[in-house]
Design a protein around this nucleic acid. Structure first.
Lengths: 62, 62
DNA sequence: TAGCCATGTAAAGCACGCTTTACACATCTA
DNA sequence: TAGATGTGTAAAGCGTGCTTTACATGGCTA
């Protein structure tokens, strides 16, 4: 499962730590998702989509 | 996390077992998601959306 | 009634999602 | 040089996602 998290975050000019706080998860979780260690849970994917104002399908690619 | 799985499945006239096979998961997994025991993983949510021809956001409600 | 299909549920076991704590390294700036 | 910031990674621990096997119930039909 590929994702555009790093690109979207860079585009928004925010750090992993800031995104983590906005999503109410740890910085390690954001980093792990960006570096492809694992996929987020469905609820977290919803939060991410909501944060960036995009559908889940636009951010994550199977 | 609420979902419309049961409704969509009934609408399509297929059993939990048939859906499970189409999604390549066990029937218990389909049943557990329908009865709200847990949420699917993100990859499985993608498969479900794809199976019903709908975006994930139209099937699962936070 | 007997048998089949659909659904719900349970238990044991494995892998993943997420946590906290901690360390390493690079870049910037006072 | 020292300190702050951003990123990557590791280990231990907990709860969840999914599996297999198995049993119980209800509705349908031969």
């Amino acid at each position: 499962m590929n994702n555009l998290l790093k690109e979207l975050r860079a585009q928004g000019g925010i750090s992993q730590a800031q995104l983590a706080e906005a999503l109410a998860v740890s910085r390690q979780t954001v980093n792990a998702i960006e570096t492809g260690k694992y996929d987020p849970s469905l609820p977290l994917a919803f939060k991410i989509g909501s944060f960036f104002g995009k559908p889940i399908e636009d951010i994550f690619k199977p």
